[in-house]
């Protein structure tokens, strides 16, 4: 199972390029936050890549909401290893955990810019 997941990670790293991910964003804050969460969950690899990509997205004018959601879902969600997670944790706990992680990625992404603004 683990070998299958690793094989899938390799496939995703080749098929889902950083350029492809950054092209998904449209400039709409709410939509981009959702896209950021989905893109982070679909991507795989070292979190460093998400920081580099997130930094580039910010430079391109993508909102901090979307970038926060993207880097958070990169490490808390993972479509690639869902089958293995369901095998180990059971289907229902995997479902609950991922739904919660998805909601909290969006929620925290929404709270970060507001908190930053309130502090400055």
């Amino acid at each position: 199972m683990l070998m299958g997941v690793i094989g899938l990670v390799g496939l995703f790293q080749v098929l889902v390029s950083p350029k492809m991910l950054s092209s998904l964003f449209r400039g709409n804050v709410a939509g981009d936050t959702l896209i950021g969460t989905m893109a982070g969950a679909a991507a795989s690899g070292n979190p460093v890549v998400s920081y580099l990509l997130g930094g580039e997205l910010l430079k391109q004018g993508i909102s901090l909401y979307a970038v926060s959601a993207f880097i958070l879902s990169w490490v808390t969600l993972g479509f690639v290893h869902l089958p293995l997670e369901a095998e180990v944790l059971g289907f229902r706990l995997t479902l609950y955990r991922n739904i919660l992680a998805f909601i909290f990625a969006m929620l925290i992404a929404a709270l970060i810019p507001i908190t930053l603004q309130a502090l400055t």
Binding site: M3, I6, G7, V9, G10, L11, Q13, V14, L15
Partner: peptide
Amino acid sequence: LAIQKSANVL
């Protein structure tokens, strides 16, 4: 390339 990436991950 995907096999190579998978080997790196492994």
